[in-house]
Write a protein that binds this DNA or RNA. Structure first.
Length: 479
RNA sequence: GCUCCCAUCGUCUAGCCUGGUCUAGGACACCGCCUUUUCACGGCGGUAACAGGGGUUCGAAUCCCCUUGGGAGUACCA
């Protein structure tokens, strides 16, 4: 049997980092087994679902390299892949359940429901205790009231059984009879509800495995009931794998208030997709060889559910940055130069440089940054004639040898042709200062550095000088 | 409240299933040293964990029970 897994986001916002992780796991699992990975859009919440979010999420998934075989944008044999386009089917099934006595119309209004919930709370009973008021209401009578236009929902009749299933990551899980009540499957506005559509679609779309976050574990109890009503039991049921949750530094479920939680933000901030997938993959899953830097696409059959961890994983942006740094260094100088270009403000002189200059610059800077945008901190060294007066700078500038160096440099600079100084030229200056002017050691190197770069720290001196426009250096020397 | 789930360094985790090789390994972060006449990179080293209590056993991080702690769910959201 071919493995079929899906990722089913609801387009109510941008792709969440946790969603990206479950999508990645599903995708990786399909790949590991030569199966198919499907994208299904769960847009039954009319109020919050937006097409632009759907597009954004698909875009982000593609950016991460998580490509689906079937989906609303690419089609497939078992579509449509957008739940809003499958409405009639859900309604038909819901009413079929009603006819078969597995579900029933319920006329409880929101206000009544609120009161019942209060009552249940006061009695310390589960809120769903009283949801079954219309459970045994006469169906023909109910239909009359519906025809008369009375607002109603369809509730599923909980058969009151214990449910057990074998979770791929958690092992055997059992839910008691009264875990849930008679839950709604069709809302008053006619829209079906998540637990209902999800099951119908997973079944109709031939899913063999379902990976989702731990927060859905309890939903499995409701879903198992729907499956049974659909006649799907035992081996025909998909295998479920509930992956641990991603949490923030306060150990709560990761959400917006924890900072950047959408894939879009990371894309915009210049993170590399390989780094993000690499990091996400390791948050709750471990590589059998204990390797940590790897290309998720090369995992192949190494990826399996027996290495999922059960406890929640804290999301740590510092570690993500480390992964980004590692992946950035694997890039060619030309690719890094291109990356830098995107994150350096348009007004910067950087953009006026030749591509050869940019590649040399990239080669020099790649050891210094974790993110492309970090390069901006270093730009003043090359394009701003101002100085950075920290203690070490002040110290070096106060040595009596430094003005001598500057005087010599000022004279030499005039004889340099072209817009840049070569590394060889800097070498010649050093030799002269050492041999003829007897300046050596720290006095020589730091004196040169502060005079030429305007600061006590920076990348390799000769390279920096060779990449800095002569005019900037001239200004630093007061010319 | 009730239900379900979880529990190894600050963090991500290996080890647990198939008890001994674990004075618990790796990675991030942190600290130190080396390298670099700057800063980084790199190399080497260090601090740091089996939640607690009972069992079972010759022996428990590993198996069982309890306690405690944490999380999720308890919707006409997904």
């Amino acid at each position: 049997m071919t493995v079929r897994v899906r990722f089913a986001p609801s387009p109510t916002g941008y792709l969440h980092i946790g969603g990206a992780r479950t999508a990645l796991y599903s995708y990786l699992f399909a790949k590991a087994h030569g199966g198919q990975y499907i994208l299904r859009v769960e847009d039954t919440d009319l109020e919050r679902s937006k097409r632009e979010y759907e597009e954004a999420q698909i875009g982000d998934l593609k950016w991460l390299g998580i490509n689906h075989d079937e989906g609303p944008d690419v089609g497939g044999n078992l579509g449509p892949y957008r739940q809003s386009e499958r409405m009639q089917m859900y309604k038909d099934i819901a009413w079929d359940f009603v006819e078969r006595g597995l579900a029933y119309p319920c006329f409880l209004t929101m206000k009544e429901l609120e009161k019942l919930t209060e009552k249940a709370n006061a009695e310390k009973k589960a809120p769903h205790t009283y949801h079954g008021k219309y459970r045994d209401f006469d169906l023909s009578e109910a239909k009359k009231r519906i025809e008369a236009g009375e607002e109603h929902v369809i509730r599923f009749k909980n058969p009151g059984k214990k449910w057990t299933f074998n979770d791929l990551v958690r092992g055997e899980v059992t839910f008691p009879e009264d875990m849930v009540g008679d839950f709604v499957i069709l809302r008053a506005n006619g829209m079906p509800v998540y637990n209902f559509c999800c099951v119908i679609d997973d079944h109709k779309m031939g899913m063999t495995h379902v990976f989702r976050a731990d927060e859905h574990l309890n939903n499995t109890c409701r879903q198992l009931q729907i499956y049974e009503a659909l006649g799907v039991t035992g081996e025909d049921l998909p295998k479920f794998g509930h992956v641990s949750l991603l949490i923030g530094s306060d150990r709560q479920k990761l959400s917006k208030r924890h900072g950047a939680t959408s894939a879009t933000q990371y894309k915009e901030e210049g993170y590399l997709p390989q780094a993000l997938t690499n990091y996400l993959c390791l948050l709750g899953w471990s590589h059998p060889d204990e390797t940590d830097i790897f290309d998720v696409n090369e995992l192949g059959s190494t990826f399996n559910y027996d290495r999922f961890s059960k406890s929640p994983a804290m999301y740590d942006i510092n570690k993500l940055k480390f992964f980004n740094e590692q992946w950035l260094r694997k890039l060619s100088d030309a690719e890094i130069a291109e990356g830098f270009s995107k994150f350096i403000p348009e007004t910067s002189e950087y953009h006026k440089m030749t591509s050869e200059w940019k590649e040399r610059f990239a080669a020099l800077m790649k050891e210094k940054v974790q993110l492309f945008s970090d390069v901006n901190e270093f730009l003043p060294i090359f394009f701003d004639s101002g100085v950075d007066e920290d203690d070490q700078y002040k110290d070096a500038i106060s040595w009596e040898t430094t003005p001598q160096i500057q005087l010599y440099l000022s004279g030499e600079l005039a004889s340099v042709e072209g817009d840049f100084i070569t590394e060889e030229k800097v070498g010649e200056w050093m030799t002269y200062l050492k041999k003829e002017m007897k300046i050596k050691g720290k006095q020589l190197f730091m004196g040169l550095r502060v005079s030429l770069t305007g600061r006590a720290h920076g990348p390799d001196l000769k390279t920096v000088v060779a990449l800095t426009p002569k005019s900037i250096i001239a200004k630093r020397l007061g010319l």
